[in-house]
Simulated scan of single mutants.
Amino acid sequence: MHADRHDDGFPLAILAKAPVPGRVKTRLTPTFAPEAAARLHEALLRQTLAVALAATPAHRIVLWTGLEHDHPLFVEFAERHGIGLRPQPEGDLGLRMFTALEAMGAPGLLVGSDCPVLTAQLLANCHAALAHHDGVLLPAEDGGYALVGLRKPRQAFFTDIDWGSDQVLAQTLARADSLGWRIAQPAKVWDVDRPADVARWQGQDTSS
Score class of each variant (00 low, 15 high):
residue 135 G to L: 06
residue 127 H to C: 07
residue 141 E to Q: 15
residue 135 G to H: 05
residue 185 Q to M: 15
residue 159 T to P: 01
residue 180 G to I: 09
residue 138 L to C: 13
residue 132 H to L: 14
residue 143 G to A: 00
residue 142 D to M: 03
residue 171 Q to H: 01
residue 180 G to P: 10
residue 185 Q to G: 06
residue 158 F to E: 03
residue 144 G to I: 00
residue 127 H to K: 09
residue 165 S to N: 01
residue 149 G to Y: 09
residue 162 D to I: 00
residue 127 H to W: 15
residue 181 W to N: 08
residue 183 I to Y: 05
residue 148 V to C: 10
residue 187 A to D: 15
residue 130 L to Y: 07
residue 154 R to K: 13
residue 178 S to Q: 15
residue 149 G to T: 09
residue 181 W to E: 14
residue 175 R to P: 05
residue 135 G to E: 02
residue 166 D to F: 04
residue 167 Q to V: 00
residue 134 D to N: 12
residue 147 L to Y: 06
residue 170 A to G: 01
residue 160 D to T: 10
residue 185 Q to W: 10
residue 132 H to C: 12
residue 155 Q to S: 13
residue 160 D to W: 02
residue 161 I to Q: 02
residue 169 L to I: 03
residue 160 D to S: 11
residue 128 A to K: 11
residue 154 R to I: 11
residue 139 P to H: 04
residue 149 G to F: 08
residue 128 A to H: 13
residue 159 T to H: 12
residue 184 A to F: 10
residue 135 G to Y: 05
residue 187 A to K: 14
residue 133 H to E: 07
residue 144 G to C: 01
residue 145 Y to C: 03
residue 160 D to G: 04
residue 164 G to P: 02
residue 145 Y to Q: 02
residue 125 N to T: 15
residue 170 A to W: 00
residue 125 N to S: 13
residue 169 L to S: 01
residue 165 S to D: 01
residue 164 G to F: 03
residue 165 S to M: 00
residue 182 R to D: 14
residue 145 Y to E: 01
residue 171 Q to R: 08
residue 177 D to K: 15
residue 184 A to Y: 08
residue 165 S to P: 00
residue 164 G to L: 02
residue 182 R to G: 11
residue 140 A to W: 06
residue 132 H to P: 03
residue 178 S to K: 15
residue 184 A to S: 13
residue 148 V to S: 09
residue 136 V to N: 08
residue 134 D to I: 06
residue 133 H to D: 06
residue 187 A to V: 11
residue 155 Q to I: 12
residue 177 D to W: 04
residue 169 L to V: 00
residue 173 L to K: 02
residue 144 G to Q: 05
residue 135 G to D: 03
residue 156 A to M: 09
residue 171 Q to C: 02
residue 128 A to N: 11
residue 164 G to I: 04
residue 131 A to H: 12
residue 142 D to K: 08
residue 173 L to E: 05
residue 179 L to W: 11
residue 158 F to P: 04
residue 127 H to G: 04
residue 144 G to D: 02
residue 182 R to M: 12
residue 144 G to P: 03
residue 129 A to N: 10
residue 151 R to E: 11
residue 171 Q to F: 00
residue 154 R to Y: 02
residue 137 L to N: 07
residue 165 S to G: 04
residue 172 T to G: 04
residue 183 I to N: 09
residue 142 D to E: 10
residue 143 G to D: 01
residue 180 G to A: 07
residue 160 D to K: 11
residue 156 A to R: 14
residue 162 D to N: 06
residue 147 L to G: 09
residue 161 I to T: 00
residue 159 T to M: 13
residue 128 A to D: 13
residue 141 E to D: 15
residue 184 A to W: 12
residue 156 A to E: 15
residue 135 G to N: 04
residue 137 L to E: 02
residue 187 A to Q: 14
residue 148 V to Q: 08
residue 187 A to W: 12
residue 126 C to V: 09
residue 146 A to Q: 09
residue 150 L to Q: 13
residue 181 W to H: 13
residue 164 G to V: 03
residue 136 V to S: 09
residue 133 H to P: 09
